[in-house]
Amino acid sequence: MDIFLQQTVNALALGGTYALLALGLAVVFSIMGLINFAHGELMTIAGYVLMYCGIAGVSFVVAVPLALMASVIAAVLMERIAFRPVRNGSGATMLVTSFAVAMILQVLFQNLISTRSQPVLLPAMLSDSVHIAGMVIGVNKLAAIVATIVMLVFLDWFMKHQKTGIAMRAAAEDFAVARLMGIRANTVIAGAFALSGLLAGVAAVLWVSQRASVDPLMGFMPVLKAFIAAILGGLGSLRGAVAGGFLLGFIEIYLSAFLPPEMQEFREPIGLGIVVLVLLFRPNGLIPSATLKAEKV
């Protein structure tokens, strides 16, 4: 039982990170129909900011906001430079553009920083653990869970009660009519990217906190997972992205904890198999997007 609870905490921490990343993808997708595979590079940028701050002796409480700021600015620039020119292109055009952006950034990281993984100096406190109800829980895991909750509450408030957030939901439902109301296309799209950058930045801090290192390809795997989570939850649906992220986190952690050792090799394919199975029963995902489904019919 203890080990089960312990793994549940791990699953919440990992699932929360996936949820934040999937949300970042979903916010942009719901408005533009773009799956931004360069989302991972936003994470990497935030990771490098943490690394340089560590080297420069900047304290972690300052480094984190700097890292978040960097990924928000990078996301907004990405939209302005790379995606705005292809905004009216097809989904495929935008998708290929996002791959190009991701690869260009990866090459830049490799050439300007290092091809190898670099250590990131973290506060010692993060590697401590606390005893709660007979469990030993890493401070970094606990921090990840708390940060995820804070972000989800913030996002919910923003999308429900802030004018820009409401406008983003309106634009996700009917972009043309949203513009007719006077909602500026550039504002909601730039807003969506800024939000996705913030989510990628928070996810990066959580990701790096578990690993204490950063490398040029760091963002690739988590964003691939987030993409799977977004589909699992229902592409374009924000609630779906959260549900999918957590479910994927649970699947991965439980498999790695409870699958017999001789089957551990097949952990990833088994995990994906479960995802496919869920999608067989719920083809539009766990919580499908109300508006996208209507469009497809």
């Binding site: 009917d174 007719l180 109301m181 006077g182």
Partner: peptide, 27 residues
């Protein structure tokens, strides 16, 4: 740009209503 028209005093109630179904009436 469509978004410039409503603020300048010209707007349309489009065919088929096209209300934002996932937003509240007030929103």
């Amino acid at each position: 740009a469509p978004e410039t028209l409503a603020p300048s005093g010209l707007t349309l109630s489009p065919e088929g209503r096209r209300v934002f179904g996932t937003l509240s009436v007030a929103d």
